[in-house]
Computed example of a mutant assay.
Amino acid sequence: MQLYGALLLLPAALLLTAFAYLPTVTTVINSLFLPGFRGAPTEFVGLENYQVLFDDPTFWKVARNNLIYAIGTIPTSIALALGMALFVNGKLRGRGFVRMAYFTPTILPMIAAANIWMFFYAPQIGLFNSLLGALGMPGVNWLGDPGVALGSVIVMSVWKEAGFL
Rank of each mutant, 00 (worst) to 15 (best):
S130Y: 08
K160V: 05
L9Q: 05
L132H: 00
I68A: 14
L80Q: 04
A114D: 07
A114I: 13
N115A: 15
Y21H: 07
V148G: 00
G163L: 00
Q2E: 03
G96H: 13
K61R: 08
Q2H: 07
I154D: 00
R38F: 15
V98S: 02
I78L: 15
G144P: 01
N89V: 09
G133H: 10
N115Q: 14
A13P: 01
M137V: 07
G96Q: 15
P57E: 05
T17H: 03
V62D: 04
S157D: 07
M1T: 01
L86Y: 13
G39L: 09
L7E: 00
L92F: 09
Y21K: 02
P75K: 08
L143M: 12
S31I: 08
F59D: 04
G90Y: 10
L92S: 08
P57S: 08
F33N: 00
A113Q: 06
I116M: 10
A113H: 07
G151W: 04
T104S: 11
N65S: 05
V28A: 13
E161S: 05
L86A: 14
F59E: 12
T106G: 09
P75S: 06
F120V: 13
V98P: 01
N141R: 04
F128R: 05
W117F: 14
Q51I: 14
L127D: 07
P23N: 06
F44D: 03
F164K: 11
I78N: 00
L47W: 14
F37V: 06
P35L: 03
G136H: 11
E43I: 11
A70P: 00
L10N: 01
A85W: 12
V153W: 11
G147E: 12
G72Y: 02
N66K: 07
W60E: 09
A81F: 08
T42K: 13
A134F: 08
A113G: 09
S157T: 14
F164M: 02
I116D: 04
R99S: 06
E43G: 12
A134V: 05
L34N: 06
A85M: 08
G90A: 13
